[in-house]
Write a protein that binds this DNA or RNA. Structure first.
Length: 371
RNA sequence: GGAGGGGUUCCCGAGUGGCCAAAGGGAGCAGACUGUAAAUCUGCCGUCGAAGACUUCGGAGGUUCGAAUCCUCCCCCCUCCA
């Protein structure tokens, strides 16, 4: 039962940009795609129905967080994550590998797996590749990520080598634990820090194991932006052309455009949703901080070129007022706009690649930003 | 009329001789945020400025080397009794 498939529809002539389509048991996904992050079984502040309206085709869930609360068994017993949260499109679950990084003070890495102290109540837990896969399968994830370690930056070459090789062993164990017949796809994650040879080694080893798709992990961790672009540029072409390539945790609108130009198909990031809650809106002309005093009496919509619900109905002055007043609707409206911006950006990117005008689109994208 | 309490930097509120341009909170302003420990966090927040200087704690005097802090008078607010 092989319900997962990737079809490469078009390759850009001047860049590495690709147009493709992923088939999953829960429907198709057009690539390049941006996947909103819904860590705890909700994209914060957005109704699933609204996500559909915004054009979201796939969202993320998180193994570590859902395991801790409410528990993967509970979710399985209640019909799986899709039913639980009322989202019937594809869900990709992160394996907990990012929490190895972000909860660095609360965890201990061993060969077997990672020991965590829950950030909720301090209780002890151990995540292994096998357990991470089991949790993701219990959740009913459509795209399961191998359990890895997102390696901090900067790290010594020695440590990156050690961690990358361990992640490769974990990838093999994830592959062994994965039950293909259940219908979910499994992606491997390339590590290797900022070292090209280690990235290459990691890719080669993962290709030997064999996955339905490949991710480039360990990016946007504070490194120079151009270094990140260089690593993407080096790492993405190492991956098979006939499999989706997922750039994990990236990024800003600029990062998405640059990522697509370097061959990325899938992206996810908390930026549009988190920044929305923190008062930052992404627009055609760059980002704006809606809490700034300059918008106090500004009757203009956040982005004059945006057609989203928020921009059609509300002024910057109103959004500033809601934010300053700490109203819940501020988060809702800001998130709505930002997700619209991100998803629309990807829509435009796909259309540009389809028409063979990606470079033109990219130039125009930057021209407007600098206005 | 009598008894008591109090007036502190935008607001609330600590401070009762030097370590005070004055705790803390709020508001305000600015910034950060990239596989979500995040509706979070950081910085600024009397004036000019690099250091430093200058003006502040209801008002006016006074004591003291030194006062938001002690004394005198005045103004205002609150509570209780008549």
């Amino acid at each position: 039962m092989h319900s997962f498939n990737f079809t490469l529809l078009k390759k850009d002539a001047l860049t590495q940009a690709r147009l493709g389509e992923i088939s999953t048991r829960r429907g198709k996904i057009e690539t390049p795609i941006f996947m909103p992050v819904g860590t705890l079984g909700t994209v914060k502040g957005v109704l699933p129905e609204t996500l559909l309206d915004l054009g979201a085709q796939i969202i993320l869930g998180n193994t570590y967080h859902l395991y801790l609360r409410p528990g993967h068994e509970l979710i399985r017993n209640l019909g799986g994550l899709h039913h639980f949260m009322n989202w019937d499109r594809p869900i990709l679950t992160d394996s907990g590998g990012f929490q190895v990084f972000s909860l660095n003070k609360l965890r201990k890495i061993g060969e077997e797996g990672v020991h965590f102290q829950s950030h909720l109540d301090g209780s002890s837990h151990t995540l292994t590749p096998e357990f991470s896969i089991a949790i993701q399968e219990a959740l009913g994830s459509d795209i399961i990520m191998a359990f890895d370690e997102c390696i901090p930056y900067p790290s010594s070459r020695e440590y990156v080598l050690e961690a990358t090789e361990r992640s490769t062993r974990w990838a093999q164990r994830s592959r062994d634990a994965w039950q293909e017949e259940r219908g979910a796809a499994l992606f491997g994650i390339v590590q290797g820090g900022m070292f090209e040879d280690l990235r290459r080694k990691s890719s080669d080893d993962l290709l030997d194991i064999g996955f339905e798709g490949y991710a480039v992990g360990g990016l946007s961790l504070g490194e120079e932006i151009n270094l990140m672009y260089d690593i993407m540029e080096f790492s993405l072409p190492l991956l098979p052309e006939d499999r989706p390539r997922y750039v994990m945790g990236v990024g800003t609108p600029e990062d998405l455009v640059e990522g697509v130009a370097r061959g990325g198909d899938m992206f996810d990031c908390v930026m549009p949703t988190r920044n929305a809650r923190n008062g930052v809106l992404f627009t055609t002309f760059g980002k704006i901080s809606i809490k700034q005093n300059r918008y106090r009496e500004d009757p203009a919509p956040p982005d004059p070129e945006c057609s989203c619900y928020v921009c059609r109905h509300y002024s910057r002055a109103y959004l500033r007022h809601l934010f300053q007043s700490k109203e819940i609707l501020a988060s809702v409206l800001n998130t709505h706009h930002n997700l619209h911006y991100y998803l629309n950006l990807m829509r435009e990117i796909r259309e540009a690649v389809r028409q063979g005008k990606f470079s033109e689109f990219k130039a125009n994208f930057y021209r407007k930003k600098s206005k």
